[in-house]
């Protein structure tokens, strides 16, 4: 087929070759390595209590963190899009901090803040709450990481909402709360789900910001990526590959399911 703009062959060749070398071959290698282990050992590794505990913590904390990010992200996005106030541009710029701040830096800093002698940890400790070196710490770190995804996905959608529908609802006698609940929020749901999904997916794989604050106690505060690292340190490559493959399968499946749900919602709102 003839094409008007030049460069199809060149960019296609380069893009596919690059993707193949950098992403596809390594990932395929991972799955082949994991598949070479055999069913019996697969099951054994994935159902070992330590892996199960880590999986529970990883997925559970990620889910809760993404949920909290969604609620706070909705509020922050609304305020940044709808209200004009001094310092708005500054706060808006700050939202991207977790994207730009290296995870290791975030990790040691959050630990310093939430450790029993830290700025916030000290006050929590007075009430008998221990944040750092506890699942709560994992949850805090993952919320920090996921938060910008929700805000940045919601903002453009909120900007495009257009005030006509709200005005229409108001002329029909709806109060502000009703307008938000029954008109605005339903229109934001698809974007909210996208933001949630991105935050969730990012949190599942997160490593740097979690390892410092979690304390890394097997069966208690150990997350899956850390478990992979510790398998590697013991030269258990097969086990590391199996855990990694299992993680990838679960997160791809989750992403796929949420994508399906989203498409249905998106379709309903069209």
């Amino acid at each position: 087929m003839k094409r008007v703009l030049p460069g199809f062959g060149l960019t296609m060749g380069f893009t596919v070759a690059y993707l193949g070398l950098v992403v596809l071959i390594p990932l395929v290698a991972l799955f082949i390595k994991a598949a070479g282990i055999g069913w019996h050992e697969w099951l054994e590794i994935l159902t070992s209590p330590r892996v199960l505990a880590a999986a529970k913590l990883t997925f559970g904390a990620s889910f809760c963190a993404a949920l909290l990010s969604s609620v706070t992200g909705l509020l922050v996005a609304w305020v940044l899009v709808r209200y004009e106030f001094p310092g708005r541009r500054f706060l808006d710029g700050m939202v991207d901090l977790p994207f730009a701040l290296p995870t290791a830096v975030a990790g040691i800093t959050l630990t310093a803040i939430y450790a029993p002698n830290g700025w916030i940890g000290e006050h929590l400790a007075k009430h008998g709450i221990q944040a750092a070196y506890n699942p709560l710490g994992v949850f805090i770190a993952l919320t920090f990481i996921g938060f910008p995804f929700v805000v940045r996905t919601l903002q453009p959608v909120m900007e495009d909402l257009g005030k006509e529908v709200e005005e229409a609802a108001a002329t029909l006698g709806a109060g502000r709360w009703t307008v938000f609940w029954r008109v605005i929020l339903p229109m934001l749901v698809p974007a909210l789900i996208t933001g949630f999904t991105l935050a969730f997916a990012r949190a599942i794989g997160e490593y740097g910001s979690v390892v410092f604050i979690s304390g890394n106690l097997p069966m208690k505060t150990e997350i899956l990526p850390l478990l992979i690292v510790s398998q590697l340190e013991q030269f258990k490559y097969g086990a590391a590959a199996v855990i990694a493959a299992g993680m990838l399968i679960v997160s791809f499946a989750l992403l796929f399911l949420i994508n399906l749900l989203q498409r249905r919602l998106d379709w309903q709102h069209r």
Binding site: V23, L30, R202, E206, A241, A244, M247, L248, L255
Partner: peptide, 12 residues
């Protein structure tokens, strides 16, 4: 890569 843990990115 957004859905792949950095640890796995090293592991491969």
């Amino acid at each position: 890569p957004f859905a792949v843990s950095p640890v796995i990115a090293g592991l491969v």
